[in-house]
Design a protein around this nucleic acid. Structure first.
Lengths: 150, 150
DNA sequence: TTCTTTGGTAGCATGTTGCAACCGACGTGG
DNA sequence: CCACGTCGGTTGCAACATGCTACCAAAGAA
């Protein structure tokens, strides 16, 4: 077997997530979907991705339950790709990637696109990892239980 | 050009993040690093990845400033790979992926590894996307400003 | 009807991944 | 100080994925 290694049977949720959405394009497609893209052509122009690749990615995202193919909302005979509830649940993932990129991959003062609260137009609060009782947690404050119960 | 498309000059922080850590193995290496792995062999056994791939990934992660190669802590002549502050800042990303996977990629009752608060042993609170004034935000409550200032 | 847009598919060149084999430097028991 | 196992890789090869450029059929527009 020389194909890409799969993690879809791993007991680690991170591994399964990576297996589902962890390739180069899938996350960007999801990002664009959050940003309002729905049509094949919209994704294609926005991402500059080859059409065959986009076709394949959309198919796997639909198969994975992240996107859904629905009849176009403008009444035309074409189809549109919209986020399912499962896909919408990826919002914190996209926000986390965005915030990490903003703070670590741009030179000071370098401009970048920004995600803002629609009501106030303000930037979002930084994501915080919290304990059950609301304390902020650093990586060192946590540990992984492998296969806890059954 | 037939090589993999790069996003390292994109104005979108999500795209740059994907460019830096968005391949199959890098995120899992970072996950293992959070979980305490430091040595080449630890990563290799834990992930089951081919050594040449691991070599390449560790190199790009070091080049990207996510990991750092330091002399081994046990006094041997070997080296270890530890997270830099930039790498530690990926904690919310890993947690977001873990929580999404737990809730969307496992059958009800199916066991999986779990990240817990070391002090209390409890599961973590779900990540929340918050506005500057602390309101919870859904995807629809936000919008993207492209290239705001400058 | 003819032209354009949309949403693909097919074929080819190249890049990347994965496996196995190999290898030198290090560590360890004697 | 010598043999042997471990650690951390490198190299070569085969299979697969990616990206580009056609090409194409169905739907809309003129």
């Amino acid at each position: 077997m020389v194909a890409r290694t799969r993690f879809d049977d791993s007991a680690c949720p991170v591994a399964r997530s990576v297996d589902t959405i962890g390739d180069w394009w899938s996350l960007l497609i999801v990002r664009d979907a959050f940003d309002g893209s729905r049509r094949f052509g919209e994704f294609q122009r926005s991402l500059g991705v080859a059409k065959n690749i986009l076709t394949a990615r959309l198919r796997t995202l639909v198969a994975g339950g992240v996107l859904e193919s629905v009849p176009a909302s403008d009444g035309s005979a074409y189809r549109e790709y919209v986020l399912t509830p499962k896909g919408e649940a990826l919002f914190p993932v996209i926000v986390a990637l965005r915030q990490w990129g903003e703070q670590n991959l741009f030179a000071p003062g370098e401009p970048h696109s920004e995600l803002v609260d629609r009501r106030e137009g303000h930037r979002l609060r930084a994501l915080e990892v919290l304990s059950a009782d609301g304390r902020g947690l650093n990586p060192d404050d946590t540990t992984v239980h492998k296969l806890p119960a059954e």
